[in-house]
Amino acid sequence: MSFEWPWQYNFPPFFTLQPNVDTRQKQLAAWCSLALSYCRHHKLYTLDVMEAQESPVFNNKKIERKLSMEAIQVVFEELRKKGNLEWLDKNKSRCLVMWRRPEEWGKLIYQWVSKNGMVNSVFTLYELSSGDDTEGEEFHGLEEWMLMRSLQALQTEGKAEIITMDDGKGVKFF
């Protein structure tokens, strides 16, 4: 399934940061949703700002427009404000993209667990992200840091507990 670009992607002004405040807000909202859906489609969890500029998201070769470095920073900052992005370094050159927030992931995992009647059982993190049972689930292939965040979110809700095992970490659902 190929990625479906939004209409804005072929609209040249989309690639210029609009000076009008109202227009810019709508533009940024469109950019945020595009960036997130693109990452989700390609299952991207980390982004490098330098690389991002060359990625098809921010560079539309067909209409010969690309978003400037400054504009990308603005978009990322907007994403951070919404809780979908975290910077990995102080220079803001790499970031974690969370097209689904940890709570949402946790909810998904918990739903799967309860659906399969496996509450009160223990899983290793590997089993959850790469096990045969979870194949076909959305959280299959989730990066470990993301999985940890999701489980931590569940833990604060009291629905799971992370336990340390000999060869790594495990989790028990309640």
């Binding site: 804005q8 040249p12 002004p13 609009q18 009008n20 227009t23």
Partner: peptide, 23 residues
């Protein structure tokens, strides 16, 4: 017109171009 939110701009190497504000 841009200030009033009716137009938006495309600032590229080809110059400044105005489009209807579709956002």
């Amino acid at each position: 017109a841009e200030k009033m939110g009716h137009l938006c701009r495309d600032d590229s190497v080809e110059g400044l171009r105005f489009y209807p504000n579709l956002f």
